[in-house]
Structures are given as structure tokens and as C-alpha cells.
Design a protein around this nucleic acid. Sequence first.
RNA 1: GGUUCCGUAGCUCAGUUGGAUAGAGCAGCAGCCUUCUAAGCUGCGGGUCGAGCGUUCGAGUCGCUCCGGAAUCACCA
Length: 604
Amino acid sequence: MEPEFLKRKMEIILREKIRDAVKALYNSHVADELIQLQETRKDFKGDFTLVVFPLLRFSKNTPEQTGETIGNYLVGNYNVIAGYNVIKGFLNLEIADSWWLEYFGKTAILKNQLGNCKVASPQTILVEYSSPNTNKPLHLGHIRNNLLGFSLYRILSICGHNVIKTNIVNDRGIHICKSMLAWQKFGNGETPETTGIKGDHLVGKYYVLFEKEYKTQIEDLVRCGIDENEARNSAPMMKEAREMLLKWEAGDTEVVELWKRMNSWVYAGFDETYKKLGVDFDKIYYESQTYKHGKKIVQEALEKNVLYSNEDSSIWADLTADGLDQKLLLRSDGTAVYMTQDLGTAVDRYNEYRFHKNIYVVGNEQNYHFHVLKALLKKMGYPWHDGLYHFSYGMVELPEGKMKSREGSVVDADDLIVEMIETAREVSLELGKLSDFTPEEKEEIFRKIGLGALKYFILKVDPKKNMTFNPVESIDFNGNTGPFIQYTYARIKSVFRKAEETGLNEKPGLLADVKAGEKEIVLIKLIRKFPERVSEAAEGYSPALVANYCYELAREYNQFYHDYSILGENDESVRNLRLALSRVTGEILNTGMWMLGIEMPERM
RNA sequence: GGUUCCGUAGCUCAGUUGGAUAGAGCAGCAGCCUUCUAAGCUGCGGGUCGAGCGUUCGAGUCGCUCCGGAAUCACCA
């Protein structure tokens, strides 16, 4: 049997009481939006604050006097309100400690703390993320993409949605031909096996080699007096790459075989990186397949006169009515562009999953592209176009600006992961707390901490904003970081190991009539916010809200841990409350970090 | 040039539908381990929230105009 306050939030009850108060005191009905209730700021005494300015129209009195009158009424008519104070136009209401304790007592026994974050009507949601090109390894930008996509999947799932993780691999086009060509010319038959180089890095090496050779050819041509643009076009490397692309599209056996072979190297490499990052997919799409369907869709739309054809037989959409521009969908030679395949992919996905939402985790540099994609689907008469959502995240920049592949200023994903684990190892060994662990156990802890630091660093930032990564300063392990939260968790685990040894275990049902301290009430209030924060994160597509909540909770817990003794407390009911608070905090931190894809060590 | 986004402490970032005296961390300085993990805790200094005007009882938050930065506007992806 759940008590009233578990089914109905305190805020809702308070609003009702305030409405009653205004009715009784001023004989007026208050519209809901005029009752402005918020949490009381830390520097003031109280739990909830009523902003009284909007109510002056009823009281026809000063803000102070109105606050006093309403506060007095509430204390007299609702025993959960233990007191109030009025500062300027703000009425601060104090909820009785007994209420918080009763609340905590009832919720602490629940299997998980997520209660009301479940949505009323679950949806089928596709989350597309990662979306790599097959000509070079993943870098820091992809890491942000992968972590955001995967975390979004977990947050939406935990709220009850049916979420499908998808990936679209850009496996065709001129870029992969460049790597192939360079490998043919300079590769001497090198493979990941013969060189020991990870497949994606090996292919990336030839992409760089192509660009290098191509550049010298352009320079040579320019020196011979040829215009730079002309040189770009006529450089032999580029000509050969284009020829190779034509051969690929024509199904030339030798080219297709090489393409398959080199892509397979890349996929093996990607799989390794994905595995290290802890992300995976339910369904992978390949552009080399979806672009064909895209072409068909474009042809059909042309026949229905939704699109138009130019004299050179290229096919276009006129989106000026939507405030956009003319958009090319098929080149004059009949080949597909990027948008063509995205149309095909979207339709394929809808046919396969009948999704409510199709979320694209793609950088904000492609905002225009997704506007156009949505407008096109609408124009072509797909009613589900409304379900498309571009989760537009900001770029990861270096202190000196944007990462540039061609200038070699990219932060490689594999390198960064290794570095993070190395740093975790150094820090851990210096602190020397793991001496009784086996080498394997230690490695596992270093891995969790290193990756925890990296993931938290990325995910704590509002996804919409660009962020800066400084490779020199690297990523911290103190303060608002993943390891800080992991450490808090490990501390809690340590308390329970000790409790086990000494027999001072938590006893269910001992939470009534405890005399609680200030920090304990603060913790209870913060714990109570967890499901709400998760809902906000799901609705706002923001893992950062979960990350920052976890930090807030860990910080609060550490203060509590520092100020109060848990197992050293002699009063059994107080000790039991502290154990329950520790356990629930640990559970929430574990679940919260799980939503970010961060693993928690039992010890560190 | 058109469109979109962003400017908060030296640095990296928080800041709910507009609410009180704008918060953390890092870096700097000063303290706290015979007691459950010091990857922690406490304190100090640090701000014209890019600038100005407007709406409002009230603006970091909303509107307009500037200044600065980014992205995009390809028969590239």
C-alpha cells in the first residue's frame, strides 16, 4: 500500500493547499500558472518557495504581508508544513523532517529508485549514431557522437521506450577509392596481419598517403603554370580515383573485391574501438545498399512531379516554399548524392520499424542537411517525417581550433583510450591502494577509471554546445569528474564490506522515528529528485543532466560521509538511516553512471 | 552576403517555464588522515553574465541593435 505522497508529488499537494489558502483568505480562484512554486535556494531556510508577486492581485496587499498571511494559513491547516519565513516577495515553506524521513523510509525499500520516470506511452525510437566513413579511424569527434548516442539509448530505454540502436556506415564513394588507390600503388600487399597495424589505421594510412601524393602532384602542375583549380581536377591521382569509383559503380570485379577486402579491415578495426568504448548496435545500415533505394524514391517522386528534372537530366527539389533552396538529388550522370541515400535509409527504416521517432545523432555542422531531409520527406508525402529528429551536438575543438584530418591535428580515438587508461594506472599506482589485487583485477580497475574519466568528461557538457579538449592538460581525475563519482561509489561499497565484517548491517524497517541531521535531510531531498532528473534528460535528450546530477549527489554524499560516522554511530536507528542513505546513494550513482555507459569499480 | 548557433571567474563548464546575494571544478593560497578509502573534506581570493537599449514588480534567461566567434549555404560527405 503506497502512501499518498508516493503517488502524488509533494509539489502537487502544496499547490492544492495554496489554492485552498487563496480561496479561504481572499475568496479568489487562482489560475495554476500564477502559483509559482520552486525549490528554496540553499542560502535560505526552507524547502519550497512560493513567489507571492503574482498573488498580489488577490491580496491587494504588500508582498511581505501577503506572504505572512498565506504562510500562517498553511502552517495552521497543513501539518506537514512545519514553519515558514518571508523574505521580500518570497514565502519559504519548511517541510517537517518527519515527512522527509517517512518518504525516504517508504522509497528506500523499492527495488530501484527510478519510479516515476517511466513514460505513460512507450514509443519505438531509432537512434542513429556513430556513422563513420570507412577511409580512416575514429577520432575524438566520433567518441562524442558514440557516447551521446549510446547514452541516449540507455536513458530512453530506462524510461520505458523501445529503442533501436542503428548505425549507417558510409562505405562507398570517392574517399574509400582514394585509400584503395594509394594501397594499390604503394601498399606492396600490406595487410593488418602482415603489418600488425589495426585495420582502420592501416586504411587511414593510405588515405593520408593519397592526400600527400595528390598534393605534390598539384604543386608540380601549378609550377608548370597550370591554374590551381584545374590542377586539382587533372592531377593523375584524382583522375585515377574517379576512374576507380566509376569501375566500382559498374561492378568491376577486381575493384569490388579490393573494396570488400579493405572495408573488412576497417570494420574489424571499428569493432575493436566500439568494444573498448562499450557501445554496440542493433542494426547496421550500409550506404552501398541504401543509396539504390534512395535513387528509386527520387525517380518515383519525379514521376509524380514532386521533383523536377533539368536540361542536363539532373534531378532537383524546389524547397523555396519551405524557406530553403533548390536541392540536387541525382547528378546529371545519374549517380546519387549524400541526400539521396539518406532518403533511402529513412524510408527503409520506417518500413522496417514503423518508428515514432528517428533520432539522428549527427554534428551541428549538418543542421541544414537535416532541415532539407525533413522538408523533402514532407514534400514527398511521408506523414512520418515529423518523427525525424536531428540530435545536433556541438563540435569537439582543440585549444587552437577545429580538428583537421589533413593537418594531422586529430585526436585519435584508440590513442586517447590507451592514454586515459595509462593515466589511470599512474594515478592508481601512486596512491597505492590496490596492492592486494591480482594484475588482471588491477587492469580492470584502470580500464574502468580511465574510460570513466573520458566518458564523463565528454558527457557532462551540454550536447548542444561546442566543447574544448586540451590534450596537454588532458582529463582530470579530481573534482567534477568520472573518477570522483566512481570513488564515491567505491567508498560506499567499502562501508558495506566493513558492515558485513562487523555485523552492523542495514536492518529493514528501522527507519521510523529517527532523529535525522541536516545533511541527512539534504541527501534525502536530492535522492528524491533522481527520477525527475532522468525524465528531464530523456525529454531534453541530455545525458549531461544525468551526469551533473550524479556529481551533485556524490558531492553531497562526500560531505555527509565526512561529517558523520556511519558504522561508528551507536544509536542503532540513526546508524541504520545512514546505511540506508549510503546504499540508496550507491544504487543511484550506479544506475546514473550506467546511463552514461560508465562502469563502477567496487574498489579503487 | 543569406541562414543557424554560441559569448557566464585566468581555464573547463553548470545555471529549470523570467525570481532572492549568478554556482561548481581546475589552477593559486591556507588548513584537515591513531576513527567507515585524503581520487576526499573545509576556508580564502577571483564576475559590468560580450556591449547597449527595450519589455517586466523582477532579465544570465525574453525582444531589438551592435561587437566577437563558429557552422552552413557543392553535381563533397
